[in-house]
Amino acid sequence: MRPGKFAYHRAETIDAALELLTNNEDAKVLAGGHSLIPALNLRLAQPEMLIDIGRLENLRGIQANGSLMIGALTTHAQIETSAAVQQYCRALSAAVSKVGDPMVRNRGTIGGNIAHADPASDPPTVLLACDSIIHLQGPDGTRTVPVQDFFLDLFTTDVQPNELVTGIEVPNMSDHKTAYAKLTHPASHYAVVGVCVAVKMDGDTCDHAHVAIGGALPKAMRSPGAEAALAGTTLDDAALNAAAEALMDEIRAEVMGDVYAPEAYRTAMAGVYLKRAIRQALAS
């Protein structure tokens, strides 16, 4: 509860923030602060400088225009209560409503969340299942990264030291049925396992399915095996079981265990929550 000393700059423009980032190697970007400040409080992070981008209002807000453009500073609560998000991607509404608690959701931002890349966080799993695109800005201009290439490892992303996450673009998934199912850690309330599915139905048959899993692994991952097992089926029990088996096989070697949930349990729960997610999606 006593952060170490740091210099503090409040950026008034994106360019000013980028300039500070470029000129200060040990600077950290402060948005809502809900990943960074707990680390400062425990002195697990002791940056020399914080660049507060919290007032860059043009990075805040949600635009629905073919796809969703969610500004990096948009809070979880804003996403949770957005009718546009509910319409475009129900699973994203569901996932952000499970982040932290109401107070955390009022301050924590989607940009800060993904830049932190906590493997047990909820939104990355949904973004991955929905083929989202991350918008970044650096001194040389803007670029976009498909979310598949954004998360590199535990707490590691493709954001370069002199770049900012400016927004997240989520495709319009309203022609899919989407859901996010989560097994919540009883202490942290992070995901022990979180599974997001987006299924496109053609009558009673699944045309294709997107499946992503988070919580159990160093970073959220898509499951090609589960997706293949679901495509072309009626999503009956046999298909769900096959998808669950495929998912478990894919992750088994990489699953992270902890005191609460050992590896074998997490692996099995990936299968269980995949099935739950699909059933929820179909019921939606």
């Binding site: 509860m1 503090y8 402060l30 602060g33 809900h34 400040i37 707990p38 409080n41 914080l50 109401p102 107070m103 955390v104 009022n106 301050r107």
Partner: peptide, 8 residues
Amino acid sequence: GVKSCTCL
């Protein structure tokens, strides 16, 4: 509502 321990 916000948590004032997680806010500078």
